[in-house]
């Protein structure tokens, strides 16, 4: 352990550009303790509680029909919201990164806005538009279209809360790449779509994958916004996070944490894949960083 050397500084006088080893280990210890207390312990709790009564009780949580319906609905919502945001993200980042135009900063700020809007407000605004007392609610009722308290409302609220995820990741990537490569391709006679597919996409694909992973995790895990527009109809409009809350409120704590552990597992897979990508392509990352 004492052999630890300052990261990437082999052969340099370590003492000058880093802290003493005692300070170093104190800082490392503090950081790890903080993370363990605030982040890891809650995660562990989920699994401990889920398995508090053994495997059978754990698995029983997933035999219920309502659980199946919640899983199905969550998958459907993510399957619509994530591709939507991927298409939007690519379109938006193309427009923003490849062109210079007036009002760009405002546009970027507006795309960011859903990040900082409270999830409750995100749900509320769709009630105000599509609810029976809302802007176009009466018209929807006349035409027999159900948006909120049904799948479309849940999808809309989910798209809203994950709206900036992909765009925000791709814009800096595309900006950094500039336009030279695309211009070259176009000069050589490639169509715009072809240039995008063969030049731009390979450049952004890992960033895209990252953002899809996080967008997906958030889409499947959103609680506040969805709870306002869902209506909590059992077996119909309950997503997994809402199902967690319902089980919790039915004193079915093991089942509640079991379903929660499914979502926590998804989070872990997301992080694992993301980190895996980072490690695997760390050489490219370093090359990229040195290039600037």
């Amino acid at each position: 352990m004492s052999k630890a050397i300052p990261h990437g500084d082999i052969g340099r006088p370590a003492s000058v550009v880093t802290e003493g080893s005692r300070v170093r280990w104190l800082l490392i210890g503090t950081a790890i303790a903080f993370l363990a207390l605030f982040l890891v312990l809650p995660l562990v709790t989920v699994f401990v509680q889920a398995f508090a009564k053994g495997w059978e009780a754990y698995l029983a949580a997933f035999t219920e029909q309502d659980a199946h319906a919640a899983i199905r609905l969550t998958l459907i919502v993510a399957a619509i919201a994530v591709p939507f945001n991927v298409v939007f993200g690519i379109m938006a980042s193309w427009a923003i990164a490849k062109f210079e135009f007036a009002g760009k900063n405002l546009l970027v700020t507006l795309i960011d806005l859903p990040f900082s809007v409270s999830p409750v407000v995100s749900g509320l605004i769709y009630v105000l538009v599509f609810g029976a007392q809302g802007l176009i609610g009466p018209w929807l009722i006349e035409h027999d279209i159900q948006i909120i308290f049904a799948v479309p409302g849940i999808v809309l609220a989910t798209i809203f809360v994950t709206f900036p995820f992909v765009a925000r990741q791709l814009i800096p990537l595309m900006q950094e790449q500039g336009t030279a490569e695309e211009e070259a391709a176009l000069t050589l006679g490639a169509s715009g779509w072809h240039a995008f597919r063969t030049v731009t996409l390979p450049n952004i694909r890992w960033g895209l994958l990252y953002s899809v992973l996080l967008c997906n995790a958030r889409a499947m895990g959103e609680f506040g916004a969805v709870s306002v527009v869902s209506g909590h109809i059992r077996g119909l409009t309950n997503t997994l996070p809402l199902h967690v809350e319902i089980l919790y409120n039915e004193y079915n704590f093991v089942a509640s944490f079991a379903v929660a552990s499914l979502l926590a597992g998804l989070a872990l897979v997301t992080l694992a894949v993301k980190s895996g990508l980072e490690w695997r392509y760390s050489a490219d990352i370093a090359a990229g960083a040195r290039g600037h």
Binding site: F165, Y281, D284, G288, A289
Partner: peptide, 23 residues
Amino acid sequence: SDDTFSQTGTSPKAGFARRTPGS
């Protein structure tokens, strides 16, 4: 700035996959 806002912490590595083609 775009990269400070990115959620994943990949920003310093922006462009790291530059050489790998595929679509």
